[in-house]
Design a protein around this nucleic acid. Structure first.
Lengths: 257, 257
DNA sequence: AAGTGGTCTAGACCACTAT
DNA sequence: TAGTGGTCTAGACCACTTT
């Protein structure tokens, strides 16, 4: 059963409300999204052409384009130059998970605290030196923190910082007392970019003890490597949290309906 | 050391090339991004106003707005009505992970195959009935698959499908022979939307055996629940893959530089 | 009052695809 | 050749923030 791109007539009932607080482009995007949710436009179908939408809804071409661009950015339609705009099938691979979801998990920021377990200067071993792009044996700041939420340990954080008196990064990091600071980038204005990866691991003995977990226990590990404005690494570390207390969820396909 | 929003002069060397294949709005977005990467615009700084950018680069207001919208969508600047547009600090919570990254992991699609382990009709237990919104005891299709890559087992997939002769979903699912089909939504045009969540777990005995893993072993579990165009659940299942063979990585902050 | 971003128009020209 | 999406203009008006 092959798809035949179709150009169905949209419900004429919907129209743009010029007195609404919602911009015309957003209203139009919503109308089109609703048509897909209602099944009037199915995956593979062709949307009405821009000229048709301009005439039907009484808006300018730029407004139509903006509405379609929004849907294209959301991944629900795909525009092909010279052919038309088509409804995309729902694809599992399009799913995106946002690390910011974890902040919701901590709900009220009042209940979250940061406990400094250790902060000392140590010489970089081969692994640390490679990650921070410094020579082996050079001094680094090693920080261990335990992040609490509602009286329960939520994350165990370990971090290596380049020790450089000319860079104020260390002082900024040591001043971190709130979880919010850690997740929003503690030394905000000093960092240019970073790489973050997510891994599934087993808690080792120390991690289990700190996180009050039984072994064996699965855990999420968020590794981060941040760079300054000279593109030099300044911070390498991991957040480790019990998997049974963390969960990422996301939606694919049509959100409204 | 508080941030003072600043409006620095951008390098005049950069300008819009009207003969380029790259659209003006993209060039302007790139110029602004480069200014941030070069440190001319730091987190907290205020971008030149739209009117200034219009004059400086000789483009229309709509083109400037589009460039800024792109940067705002990417999360590197934030526009505040009546105040100005400002460079956002790099935030770890802004990190997003795309499930589509896993497709790269499978590189050449040729080396991937789908092995059907089992497909049979079983009565829904309480858990399955709740997820699929059917009555307990109703018939469902239970499918077990092993997904191979380069001669190694990569994912173990289990799935429950609502058994309904009026819905062609089952036939479509059983025809799946390629990994690509599974990740891009096998029964594309029949599915309206879905929820996907990612979890870290331990492999049980059966999973370890199928995935040729030693125990205990951490694993990623991708749970999915797909709905049809009547918003009825049709498919519930999980992909389980060894954590030591999977990794999600992403960037935050400025990508170019 | 002045400056900022937010929206929108009514066209224009171009590149691409299909017939 | 006709139809499609892609880009762009040169303004306009509005809402909001700051002075």
């Amino acid at each position: 059963m092959a798809h035949r791109p179709q150009n169905k007539v949209l419900q004429e009932t919907a129209s743009i409300d010029r007195d609404s607080f919602e911009p015309a482009y957003a209203q139009l995007a919503g109308i089109l999204r609703q048509s897909m949710a209602d099944g009037l436009l199915r995956p593979g179908d062709q949307l009405p052409s821009e000229a048709q939408l301009v005439e039907r809804y009484g808006v300018s071409p730029m407004t139509v384009r903006r509405a379609i661009n929004i849907l294209a950015d959301q991944g629900v339609v795909v525009a092909e130059q010279g052919r038309g705009t088509f409804v995309k099938p729902v694809a599992m691979s399009a799913a995106t998970f946002q690390l910011g979801q974890l902040e919701n998990l901590f709900g009220n920021r009042e209940g979250t605290t940061v406990q400094l377990l250790e902060a000392r200067i140590i010489a970089a071993d081969e692994r640390v030196a490679r990650k921070l792009a410094i020579r082996e044996g050079k001094r680094t700041i090693y920080i261990r923190r335990l992040l609490w939420n509602s009286g329960e340990p939520a994350f165990y954080h370990r971090e290596y910082l380049v020790y450089d008196p000319t860079r104020p990064i260390v002082e900024a990091e040591l001043e971190v007392t709130a979880l919010q600071q850690l997740f929003s980038g503690s030394s905000e204005s000093l960092l240019k970019h970073g790489e973050i990866s997510i891994d599934a691991t087993l808690l080792d003995e120390e991690e289990s003890r700190l996180l009050k977990a039984t072994q064996p226990m699965a855990a999420f590990c968020f590794e981060h490597l941040f760079y300054d404005f000279d593109d030099r690494p300044v911070s390498w570390g991991w957040f480790i949290g019990r998997a049974d207390r963390l969960r990422f969820t996301t939606q694919v396909g049509l959100l409204l309906g």
